[in-house]
Simulated assay, not measured.
Amino acid sequence: MPAFQTKTFRRATTASSSLGEKIGEVYRARLPRHPFLLFGLPFIMIIVAGSFALTPAAALRYERYDRKVKQLSQDEAMDLGLKGSDGEEGIKRNSRRRIIGDDREEYYRLMAKDLDNWEQKRVQRFKGEPDGKL
C-alpha cells in the first residue's frame, strides 16, 4: 500500500453543510473565470461606498475643530486684548494695523514703499539658542 492515497479528499455531504458553504463553493469555482466581476467590482464598490460614508464624519471633525478654535472665554479675550475694558469687542488700539479701503488701495500703498533701500537686521535670539553664526 502506498504512503499516500491517490484519491482526493472530499468532505462527505452532510446536513451540516450550510447555504453559506455552498455559495462559497460556487464563488470559488467561478472566480478564475470572472475575476473582475466577482472580485474587482465588489472591491471598487466598497471603496466608493466607504468614501461616501466617511465624508460626513470628516466634515463633522473639521466643524468641531473650528468651533473649538473660535470659542474664547471672556478672560482669554481680555488677556489677548480682543475686548476692551468696557466689554466691547474690537482690536486693541495700536496693537494691529487695520486695513482701510479695498484691495486696490492697499496694493498701491504697499507699492509706494521704497523697496530698494533696506537693511537686513538679525532677529534677537533667546539665551542659549544658537544664532547660526560661525
Rank of each mutant, 00 (worst) to 15 (best):
I91L: 15
A112E: 13
R28F: 02
Y108T: 11
L19Y: 10
A15L: 12
R30W: 08
R67G: 04
K133M: 02
R97D: 03
P35K: 10
E76V: 12
K92R: 14
L60K: 14
L37R: 10
I99T: 10
A59E: 11
N94H: 10
Y65N: 06
R10F: 08
W118K: 10
D79G: 15
S17P: 00
H34W: 12
G50V: 03
E119H: 03
P2T: 01
M78F: 06
G101I: 06
P42H: 03
I91G: 04
D116H: 09
S73E: 05
F36W: 13
I47Y: 07
K121L: 12
F52W: 15
R30G: 01
E105R: 13
R33D: 14
I23Y: 03
I23F: 08
R11K: 13
P130R: 04
T55N: 09
I23D: 00
K68Q: 14
R98M: 12
S18M: 07
R64H: 08
E21M: 13
D86L: 06
L134D: 13
I100P: 00
A58N: 02
K83S: 01
D79H: 13
D86H: 05
A112D: 14
R33Q: 14
E21N: 11
L60A: 15
I47E: 04
D75L: 11
D75I: 10
G50C: 09
R28T: 09
E25M: 06
R109N: 05
W118P: 00
D103M: 08
T55D: 09
A29Y: 13
R96G: 02
L115A: 10
G87S: 06
P56M: 09
P130A: 03
A58M: 12
K92S: 10
L82T: 05
A3E: 06
A15I: 09
D86G: 10
R28C: 02
E21W: 05
Y108A: 02
K92N: 02
A112K: 13
L54R: 04
L54P: 00
D103I: 10
K113T: 01
F39K: 13
N94A: 08
A57Q: 12
T55W: 12
V69L: 15
R109F: 02
R64Y: 05
Y108M: 09
K127E: 09
Q74N: 07
F52V: 15
G20E: 07
R96L: 15
E89Q: 06
Q74A: 12
P42S: 04
Q71G: 03
I91S: 07
R33N: 11
R93K: 14
K7M: 02
G81S: 07
R104I: 09
H34D: 09
L110A: 11
D66H: 08
F39G: 04
G81R: 08
R122C: 00
S18L: 08
K127A: 10
L54Q: 11
I46C: 05
A112M: 10
A49M: 13
K70C: 03
A59T: 08
H34Y: 15
R109P: 00
G24W: 02
L60N: 14
F126V: 05
L54H: 05
P2M: 01
A15C: 00
E129R: 03
P42W: 03
V69I: 15
E25F: 08
